[in-house]
Simulated assay, not measured.
Amino acid sequence: MGSQVNPCITFNGNARQAVEFYREVFGGELELRTVADFGSPDSPNADKVMHSRLDTPAGYTLMAWDHPDDRPGHPPYRPGNNVAIFLDGDDLGLRDYFEKLSVGGTVTLPLEKQVWGDEAGSLVDQFGISWMFNITTRNR
């Protein structure tokens, strides 16, 4: 099967809301399990997301969970500004994703032609996650 890398985004208690939003944007199948589902139904964090995975029709896989604030030694929660999810390709449907993700968020670079010849843009979505887009308009 080989290996693959999938982003796993940490949220501060709103992972369910975020991944449901991403499913609306990208479509696909969402798997979501809580702390209770993993055998801790009496935990004060029983309803927090411990694992989620969104597999989209375009072949993207996004994973997410809620920050485990009750785990000793785990670093404190920090919004997702240290990671950006990068979408790159010649699929013009990327424009639609850009527009949908920008709702309630902040466009930090409008999606437009750049000096290297491609269309590129970036945004921070309503959950504080950075997204970067590059739509190839030239032959590589």
Results as ranks from 00 to 15, higher is better:
Leu109Ala: 13
Ile9His: 09
Tyr60Glu: 14
Phe98Pro: 01
Glu112Arg: 14
Asp96Glu: 10
Pro68Gly: 11
Asp47Ile: 02
Gly121Leu: 05
Ala46Val: 04
Asp96Pro: 03
Thr108His: 09
Val115Tyr: 11
Ser43Tyr: 07
Glu99Ser: 08
Phe26Gln: 02
Pro44Leu: 05
Ala58Asp: 14
Ala18Tyr: 07
Gly128Ser: 04
Gln17Asp: 15
Gly104Asp: 15
Leu32Trp: 04
Asn6Leu: 08
Pro72Phe: 09
Glu29Val: 12
Ala84Thr: 12
Tyr60Gly: 13
Phe11Tyr: 13
Asp70Cys: 05
Gly117Ile: 05
Pro68Ile: 09
Thr61Gly: 05
Ile129Tyr: 01
Pro44Asn: 07
Tyr22Pro: 03
Ile85Ser: 08
Val5Ser: 13
Lys113Gly: 02
Met50Glu: 04
Val103Leu: 09
Gly105Leu: 02
Ser43Leu: 08
Ile9Glu: 04
Phe26Asp: 00
Arg71Met: 13
Gln4Glu: 15
Gly93Gln: 08
Phe86Gln: 15
Thr106Glu: 15
Trp116Met: 06
Gln126Asn: 01
Met63Val: 07
Arg23Gln: 15
Met50Lys: 01
Trp131Pro: 00
Pro110His: 07
Asn14Leu: 06
Ser130Cys: 10
Pro75Phe: 11
Thr56Lys: 06
Glu29Gly: 06
Thr10Trp: 06
Thr56Arg: 08
Tyr77Val: 14
Asn82Gly: 14
Gly93Arg: 10
Glu99Met: 05
Val124Pro: 00
Val19Arg: 03
Lys48Leu: 11
Asn12Val: 07
Ala58Gly: 13
Ile85Asn: 10
Tyr97Cys: 09
Thr10Gln: 10
Val107Gln: 02
Pro79Met: 11
Lys100Gly: 09
Arg71His: 07
Asn45Phe: 14
Gly128Gln: 03
Ser52Gln: 07
Gly89Asp: 15
Leu87Phe: 14
Leu123Asp: 03
Val35Trp: 01
Leu30Gly: 07
Arg138Trp: 07
Val19Glu: 00
Lys48Gln: 13
Thr34Ile: 08
Asp42Val: 04
Thr56Leu: 10
Arg95Gly: 07
Arg23Val: 02
Pro76Glu: 11
Arg71Pro: 00
Lys100Leu: 09
Gly121Asp: 00
Glu119Asn: 05
Ala120Trp: 02
Met1Arg: 09
Gln17Asn: 05
Arg23Asp: 02
Leu54Asp: 04
Thr136Gly: 01
Thr136Pro: 00
Asp118Cys: 08
Gly27His: 03
Gly28Cys: 14
Arg140Val: 01
Arg16Cys: 02
Ser130Glu: 12
His67Met: 13
Asn6Ile: 12
Gly73Tyr: 03
Pro44Glu: 13
Asn14Glu: 13
Leu32Arg: 02
Ala84Ser: 15
Ala120Pro: 00
Ile85Trp: 11
Arg23Met: 04
Leu87Ser: 10
Glu24Cys: 12
Gly128Cys: 04
Ala15Pro: 02
Arg23Lys: 14
